[in-house]
């Protein structure tokens, strides 16, 4: 494998693209930030890349619902190329608003597309407001290639709509039993709990989902915001924790070893 190439999607209101590209470059990838109009114009553009990241932000102002308008745009213009991207064994990462977009486009937890299969959604925090705070995340699946097995990580969330809900209990059971849950919110000692351990009231403390291949990951917390020591909220107390780089490093490593 030659140089790993990552594409970071831009669109109206996406605003974490620069630091996401920076994190990918720290991990050794070449990262390019590309506007969705360019991708729609040139549908074979994705062929040149092995990692696609939909970064955080407020795509289209989160109008109608978080990630809805961009998800709809992807569904109607880019769904084929993205499905092919997954079929080709490549990786997709959705962070915060990007996660919401992937769910609303029908690319997570399944890759079927559209509303028909959408049994899972991401909706308003129980608190009813946007919150920026740090959370511990415990990995739940060994399938997801972005995750370091058994490693708890510490990351910030910053969202108003991060509560994951399913349409019914069966859907939730399937998520659990089929290994779709990538991370859960836990406390420092790895235990699940109420607010603020679970910052948004997410069902079963779900923080992140992966698809059946383990090569698509969507997560509400921001791994790109903790890639250096001084971003830890308690670095002046000498505290460290496993950070967001593991996710980017694993992605790049996976591509190097498998594609």
């Amino acid at each position: 494998m030659g140089q790993v190439k990552a594409i970071v999607l831009r669109a109206a209101g996406i605003n974490c693209d620069a630091e996401t590209a920076y994190a990918l470059e720290l991990a050794g990838a070449d990262a390019e930030r590309v506007h969705i109009n360019k991708m729609i114009e040139n549908k074979s553009l994705l062929d040149d890349y092995q990692i696609l990241v939909v970064p955080g932000g407020f795509s289209y102002g989160d109008d109608v619902a978080a990630g809805k308008i961009l998800g709809n745009q992807i569904l109607h213009h880019l769904f084929g190329p993205m499905q092919k991207f997954i079929e080709d064994g490549k990786l997709i990462l959705g962070i915060c608003n990007g996660f919401q977009v992937l769910v609303k486009a029908g690319l997570l937890p399944g890759n079927g597309g559209g509303n028909a299969e959408q049994g899972v959604t991401i909706t308003y925090n129980d608190s009813g407001k946007f919150e920026d705070r740090w959370v511990y995340l415990s990995p739940q699946t060994e399938r997801c290639v972005f995750i370091e097995k058994g490693q708890q990580i510490y990351l910030p969330i910053a969202h108003g709509e991060g509560k994951i809900v399913t349409k019914d209990d069966d859907t939730l059971k399937t998520l659990e039993s089929d290994g779709h849950i990538a991370f859960k919110y836990v406390d420092k000692d790895g235990r699940q709990g109420d607010f603020p351990v679970n910052p948004n009231g997410s069902t079963n403390s779900i923080a992140a989902l992966t698809d059946k291949t383990g090569r698509v990951l969507g997560l509400m917390p921001h791994p790109e915001r903790f890639v250096r020591k001084v971003q830890h909220p308690r670095w002046t107390r000498g505290e460290t924790d496993a950070n967001g780089m593991t996710i980017f490093n694993n992605a790049v490593k996976y591509v190097q070893e498998n594609l």
Binding site: C16, E19, Y22, D132, R225
Partner: peptide, 11 residues
Amino acid sequence: RQYDHEVQGGS
């Protein structure tokens, strides 16, 4: 907490 004080990764 209602303000995003960490976006852009520079905090």
